[in-house]
Design a protein around this nucleic acid. Structure first.
Lengths: 120, 120
DNA sequence: TTACCGTATTGATGACTGTCAATCTAAGTG
DNA sequence: CACTTAGATTGACAGTCATCAATACGGTAA
């Protein structure tokens, strides 16, 4: 049997979609990373992260956060949802209260991903 | 003369503005950090950082970046200005061309600042 | 000087976002 | 059951943003 060269073909397809620079950020990766960064690039949400991290047991309910943030309950709930959807906060409902906590390593991986963008 | 107690007064004022948690992100720091993160939380600007970093000599002019980004020249110029104002890119004009380059350590300090927010 | 080229800026537009007030849902409590 | 309380959701509004087309600016070359 003749052994068909498969690897060169896949290489060509890779070259096709990355024309000039070898290892540059793809559009998909850029969209993904930017959406995660957007979740954190807001003063209210940065303070939420800081408040929750500084809180006892590293978790807090909405009622703990509304007053120090100076925003309405609905707005705080909105920001918390964005942080949960970005994979930064975890939400656990116990009784009437909803407790939010930092997902371990989430900020670290985001911080690391940002750093990698600047490395060729 | 009666010695007036000044220190207790200032202590009270400090307690007044930091009611519960001790070392939480201030509103000013949150605004500052979020504005730097906003500069980077955009797909086009993330790709700009990646493209410049991967470019020869780690610098590039606008004409090098317009085509791989798929955006108009004016839009690319606009994004580059935002990155310069955020302290991430440096701009050097040589002749007709404007060369942009990553400021060393800029992404690193931003990445580190983001990480610190999550540490109590 | 005029002409050209690379870049910056302006104006307009459509999309997105942060915020609040109001409402709705759900879980406890009388 | 009705009532209260915590949180989520909705609708509306103002502000911001990404984008393009067009124009202005600033060197360089003829």
């Amino acid at each position: 049997m003749s052994t068909i060269q498969l690897l060169p073909l896949t290489d060509v397809s890779v070259e096709c979609c990355t024309p000039l620079d070898s290892d540059t950020l793809s559009v998909e990766d850029a969209d993904l990373l930017s959406s995660r960064l957007k979740a954190v690039a807001d003063p209210a949400r940065l303070r939420l992260v800081s408040l929750v991290a500084a809180h006892a047991n590293a978790e807090a309910c909405v009622c703990d956060l509304t007053e120090p943030l100076g925003l309405s309950q609905g707005t705080v709930s909105h920001h918390l949802k964005i942080l949960v959807e970005a994979g930064i906060f975890a939400r656990e409902k116990r009784g009437t209260w909803a407790y939010y906590s930092l997902i371990p390593g989430a900020l670290g991986s985001l911080s690391a991903a940002l750093l990698v963008v600047g490395e060729k």
